[in-house]
Design a protein around this nucleic acid. Structure first.
Lengths: 159, 159
DNA sequence: CGACCTATACTTAGGCT
DNA sequence: AAGCCTAAGTATAGGTC
């Protein structure tokens, strides 16, 4: 970002990519630690990069696994609870997002968001092994992505 | 950090803490996405905060589980491979860190690092359920922590 | 709350060693 | 590769609405 602005896309040159990775990994882990310490958040992160022999694990292997295991148990707990409330919540979030999208489109003079545009974003966002748990949020995620692209005036993949 | 510099410690006021969390969560997830996209890293992160009903999962529930499962399987794989190489590697890293520590101590006029200081840091860093996999790196982690404290001129817990 | 603002702290691309 | 430097892009504390 300094000196030159970096395009939000894979850094093609491997050497540059490695350099960037090393710097950003450090930055990312610092941010993680700040967040954890300042705000007392239980968190875990893993980074698998071709530039490290072993994965980077935050804050450490054991704690990460403990945190992760809580996540695995979560969907079961949720099922027995109030799915309805959760859906209402999602609905409201999406409505809000629609308003925002409209605003951003106007500002950036994007006349319409075609189905094709959604499809392109969907392909980028959905992985084959996506958990059903996420599918509720799919529309939300895609719209959010779109807004982000427009706001940051990134070159959209379909333009 | 802007306007006023923030102390690297828990934000005591709950309202401030929540405010900070919301902003930093957003920043953290942005950084995660940048790192993933720019450098093509397979990564996952989980955040449990009292300020969200559900954990924040990056990039999504399913992908995070896939990534974390790789981590769970890792120690088994490692055992059957070359532990020696790994130990050599750790040794070198620690040697290097020792040099750095010496430099930083001089610069900050910290005459010596007592065992007591190490113990204090150890208590803060080690969790009871720490995985044996991490214990190799303990010395490294503690030294790194110490250097970081000195460099950032944080108020050390034992001073 | 969450969105927006702004000044300042922080991060980092590119260059050099 | 790893460290340091610097300029310029980002993030965010504190504040307002």
């Amino acid at each position: 970002m300094p000196r030159n602005k970096v395009k939000f896309a894979l850094i093609e040159n491997e050497n540059d990519r490695k350099l960037s990775y090393k710097k950003r990994e450090k930055g990312f882990l610092t941010k993680a630690e700040e967040l954890r310490t300042l705000c007392d958040v239980e968190m875990a992160a893993i980074l698998y990069s071709p530039f490290n022999n072993e994965p980077k694990v935050f804050p450490n292997h054991g704690a990460a696994i403990t945190t992760f295991e809580k996540l695995v148990e979560l969907p079961t707990l949720k099922k027995s609870k109030n799915m309805v409330t959760s859906d209402e919540f999602t609905k409201k979030r999406i409505e809000k997002l629609n308003d925002k999208l409209l605003k951003v489109r106007k500002k950036n003079k994007v006349k319409e968001v075609t189905n094709e545009m959604y499809e392109m974003l969907k392909c980028k966002e959905i992985s084959i092994d996506m958990h059903p748990y996420d599918l509720n949020d799919l529309s939300y995620v895609i719209k959010q992505k779109l807004i982000q692209c427009l706001q940051q005036q990134r070159i959209l993949p379909f333009l």
